[in-house]
Amino acid sequence: MKRPYLGIVVGVLTLGCDLVHPSDPVALDRDVVLVETVLFAGSDEIHAVVGFPHRNGGAPPALSLSIDGPSASTPLQPASAPSRCGLLSPKAWGVYQCLRAGLGAPLASGERFRLRGAGPAGEIVGETTIPRAPTLAAPASDTVVARTTANGELASIRLTFASPPEVDLVELAIHDLTVRLANGEERDDCTLITNPASGAPLPREGTVELAFRFLSCPGGATGWREFRVSAQVVGYDGAYGRFVRSAGAGILRQPAPDFGLRGAVGVFGSAAASRRVQVTVQQ
């Protein structure tokens, strides 16, 4: 007579402790495949990062990805320079590989591209249309000369810009820093801090004050005569814009935002940059 009661008690305790469903919703799936690529108007090549983000070792996924453009289909091949992937600490992101595809001609705004491939979990498909670039109204010239100020800033310029409707995210891009030191030496390994920083999100249109705040060069060389740097405004499509805004937003539930990609996690987006302004800052 006692056994049925014992069974009931054990059953209730088992269910109560959830022993029959020892689920762990934060256990990550090691077979998840990562694909991230953004196509840039004006570029004649495509870079992509693919990987198993939740694995500690082993081979990266063999995806056989290709890009179908308006005129041709181009396979993505392992790149010879993995650092071009953009990952500073690749090991923090699992097992990954950089892919590259050379195109015969620069990508153009309005062109539509498809990403295709076969992954472990099935077909990988992405689609994007390259947006038009933001227009830079000021400075009117492609070259600007600015002088240092007395209030702690090295110098500042004003950027006035507007974005077409298909642009979802606007960012500032700063690159190609060249410094002429006091001894006449030219260096391209120095670091410049700006406000807003390179990669910072900007409003879709308006005017921002771009301040150059701090400059340092390896070896402690701080005496400089002038430096040159390029600035431009980059407009990204909705897929990449949603992707960036989702970072740090908590655990997204399904249905997830559209990142332009199916069959893998990541993003397939596109971007176009405004004309470049070369800023020369002099002491």
Binding site: S23, P25, V26, A27, L28, D29, V32, L34, E36, T37, V38, F40, G42, S43, H47, V49, P53, H54, S83, R84, C85, G86, L87, L88, S89, A92, W93, A173, H175, D176, S198, G199, S230, V234, Y236, Y240, F243, V244, A247, I251, R253, V265, G266, V267, G269, A271, A273
Partner: peptide, 22 residues
């Protein structure tokens, strides 16, 4: 909500290169 993946936002590589670090 079960977690499916943690996806790094890798800086895109444009014609002028890209930033480093997720």
């Amino acid at each position: 909500t079960p977690l499916l993946a943690l996806v790094p936002v890798v800086p895109p590589v444009g014609p002028d290169g890209g930033d480093a670090g997720a």
